[in-house]
Nucleic acid binder design. Structure first.
Lengths: 151, 151
DNA sequence: ACAGCTATTGCAACTAGTTGCAAAAAAGAC
DNA sequence: GTCTTTTTTGCAACTAGTTGCAATAGCTGT
């Protein structure tokens, strides 16, 4: 029973003149079933759990395709593996480089910067979906504490 | 004849309690001699041109160390290889995803956004040195032209 | 149904970058 | 100076991700 959500993705694929093959459908299913971010590895695992004859190349290429269509975000969260996320509304991530906490940042927050760059540099930024590293509040407090713990 | 610039880096390394080994010095020299961005590959080549017994692991680890110390920036400009750059003043890059043009963005441009995020999310962003993709003016015009060229 | 075309997949080989571990080099204690 | 400890290096094996290419699957027109 394909969810409403998956059917919408199907329509968006078709609108781009791209086929929704069984492999691609399964990748979408696994992404939809993964809350938050997932890795290519886990997507491949999830797909192969149901149908083992799918190649990792296909998974990587599907993730790349979906990213190009704006349906998936690739996030380099600083770990060894790239993370992937099925997108609904455009947003970004604040990632604490100390504890790994991730905060969602709505896209609109970037509008002032977007306009500034357009005005001053004649450059049209994409801000597709990006990761911003820093220190979260809890870690700021811990670091500020006297005799604080090592980073 | 080590340049003024290299000596400063030396001092900064020493201040961090890190040794300036011959290998590290050579990596710095090659970086200093490379205008703009370079790849790890080219750094290794440059180092080995003078002293072939240096391992790629050492180069990668040195680049990582220098990045952690804020002396080098790692940039994923969308190509196959990560790019590295010896830093003087903090800055960022606007990269045209159509023609590859790179524009330098002074760090101060991000101050308003930085403050907004600190205020609204209690998160202290780093903005170490990052790459922002988009479309440059020339490409915007070409794309807008009637019967414009394919992307 | 069949021929011809394009889109897509799977495989194997490859590339960039990382990691574990033992050896070497430097620094410190006495 | 020599013993000990810490830092750094080199090697080899590994991982994530990519690429070239031949094979397959799915249209399209007839």
């Amino acid at each position: 029973m394909p969810s409403e959500r998956l059917l919408q993705y199907n329509a968006r694929l078709a609108a781009s003149g791209v086929r929704l093959t069984p492999q691609r459908f399964m990748v979408l299913e696994v992404l939809a079933a993964s809350p938050g971010h997932t890795t290519a590895d886990k997507v491949l695992g999830g797909v192969q759990a149901r149908y083992p004859y799918v190649n990792k190349t296909t998974v990587y290429r599907t993730l790349e395709l979906l990213t190009a269509l704006g349906m998936v975000a690739m996030i380099d969260a600083g770990g060894a593996q790239t993370e992937y996320e099925l997108l609904d509304a455009p947003h970004h991530h604040l990632i604490c480089k100390r504890c790994g906490l991730q905060i969602e940042l709505p896209d609109a927050t970037l509008n002032p910067l977007r306009q500034l760059i357009e005005r001053e540099h004649n450059f049209q930024p994409s801000f597709d979906h990006f990761a911003l590293f820093g220190v979260c509040q809890a870690c700021q407090e811990q670091l500020a504490a006297p005799g604080g713990p090592p980073p």
